[in-house]
């Protein structure tokens, strides 16, 4: 069953008097539980595609269905709720809330969902343990290394049991060892939680972790190379 369906997706950005096309008509289907990588050079449209799937940016034309809902027609509140309930995000720059500690950062989406304190705590504790940060639970983001912060971001993305986790170049700012560890972790989570992972990268070393690879160039999907 497809959890993401994209048809004729176009995205254009105005730049002064000219229009810059970022996506020129993308068609893509992603099945539940996939661990998929979108690869391509800088400026190819990887981030734009992830942003549109994640309801962070909006299509100029075409249709995008996420978890069975056509997102191009949703209101701001509906889109926000969709992000909260169905999508997890992992950013390149490990965006965490600086004033909350590790545990609170992970718990944050659950509290937005109005989960009870006990339920939120239990789920957050499980995730803290799974990403190996139990002893750092009371630390603030500024007290963590890059890899640790990204692990917090992964835990936060997974804490709500989302149907999809979107990660935009999750290893771009990490050294190769830490990056590999993060990808291992994501893959393990994919296996454990059966969560669909879609991540972008332009690092060839990352590809070996993906089960499916989608290549994008100049705003169009070229072909799907064989997965590792």
């Amino acid at each position: 069953m497809n959890i993401i369906e994209i048809r004729e997706l176009k995205k254009e950005y105005p730049l002064g008097n000219t229009i810059v096309p970022a996506l020129r008509g993308v068609d893509l289907e992603v099945e539940e539980g996939e661990f998929m990588s979108i690869i391509g050079p800088s400026g190819s449209g990887k981030t734009t595609l992830l942003n549109v799937i994640g309801c962070i940016d909006f299509a100029t034309a075409g249709s995008v269905t996420v978890g069975g809902r056509e997102i191009t027609t949703l209101s701001d509140t509906q889109v926000t709720d969709l992000r909260l309930n169905k999508i997890g995000f992992i950013f390149q720059n490990f965006n965490l809330i600086p004033v909350l500690d590790v545990f609170e950062n992970i718990e944050f989406p659950l509290l937005l969902m109005k989960k009870s304190g006990a339920e939120a705590r239990k789920r957050a504790e499980k995730l803290v343990e799974e990403v190996g940060l139990k002893e750092f639970a009371a630390h603030r983001p500024a007290e963590l290394s890059g890899g640790q912060r990204q692990r917090v971001a992964i835990a936060r993305a997974l804490v709500t049991n989302p149907e999809i986790v979107l990660a935009d170049e999750p290893t771009a700012n990490l050294d190769s060892v830490t990056g590999a560890a993060i990808l291992e972790l994501m893959r393990r989570m994919n296996e454990l939680e059966k969560t669909t992972f879609v991540f972008s990268t332009h690092d060839a070393n990352v590809l070996k972790y993906a089960r499916r690879i989608v290549k994008i160039k100049d705003g169009l999907i070229e072909k799907e190379p064989a997965a590792a």
């Binding site: 962070i56 701001d76 709720d81 992000r83 965006n95 989406p109 937005l112």
Partner: peptide, 9 residues
């Protein structure tokens, strides 16, 4: 980022 993870306006 808060908005991205689901914080409403």
């Amino acid at each position: 980022m808060m908005r991205a993870v689901g914080a409403r306006k």
